[in-house]
Simulated assay, not measured.
Amino acid sequence: MIQPRPNSRARIGAALALFPLLLAASCVSESNAGGAATTLATGAVKPAALATAEFGAPQPAHATYSCGQRGSLTIDNFRTSVRLVDPEGDNVELPAAPATQQSRYGQAPYALVLDGNEALYMKNGKEPVTCNR
């Protein structure tokens, strides 16, 4: 079994703590989403703001992450949403959660946190997996 790096455990803990928030954010109806949804829908977000993820590292539009023995995670990043193929082969589309940022994505039962060259992928009922580019 591959042992996670010490700070990976901290990230997993932080991501698990944020998971309920991601799920709650995905439950907001369009009529209650407020100005952020309107801004995203109208395209008023400035392209320069989309160049860098919240954690400071630029995220590529398409990337494949190695998840060790579990396989790979392929992500198409559209900044306000991602489309991914998880290690089990499931095709998933996730919105940004909350809608105004570009490193956390989620919709029950999935969550994804991008941080530099790492992607933390969570699926309800499964152990979270940290994958690397």
Rank of each mutant, 00 (worst) to 15 (best):
M1P: 09
I2K: 07
Q3I: 05
R5W: 07
S8K: 14
S8M: 06
R9W: 14
A10G: 14
I12A: 11
G13H: 13
L16C: 14
A17I: 13
A17M: 14
L18D: 09
F19L: 13
F19R: 13
L23S: 08
A24M: 10
A25F: 15
A25E: 13
C27I: 13
V28Y: 08
V28D: 09
S29Y: 13
S29D: 12
S29F: 14
E30V: 11
E30R: 14
S31C: 15
N32I: 15
A33E: 10
G34K: 02
G35V: 15
A36T: 14
T39F: 15
L40F: 12
G43Y: 12
A44L: 14
V45C: 06
K46D: 12
A48G: 12
A49N: 13
L50K: 09
A53R: 02
A53C: 11
A53K: 05
F55S: 10
F55K: 07
F55C: 08
G56C: 11
P60Y: 05
P60I: 05
P60H: 06
H62V: 05
H62M: 07
H62R: 03
A63G: 07
T64C: 00
S66T: 07
Q69G: 10
R70T: 03
G71K: 02
T74I: 03
I75H: 00
D76N: 05
F78C: 04
R79T: 04
T80E: 12
S81E: 04
L84P: 01
D86M: 02
D86E: 06
P87Y: 00
E88H: 11
G89F: 07
G89H: 00
N91G: 03
L94V: 03
A96L: 08
P98Y: 05
A99H: 08
Q102D: 07
R104T: 04
Y105A: 02
Y105R: 05
G106F: 02
Q107G: 06
Q107A: 09
A108N: 10
Y110I: 00
Y110W: 05
A111R: 00
L112S: 00
V113L: 06
L114G: 02
L114Q: 00
L114S: 01
G116Q: 07
N117V: 07
L120N: 01
M122P: 06
K123I: 01
N124W: 15
N124P: 01
V129E: 04
N132A: 11
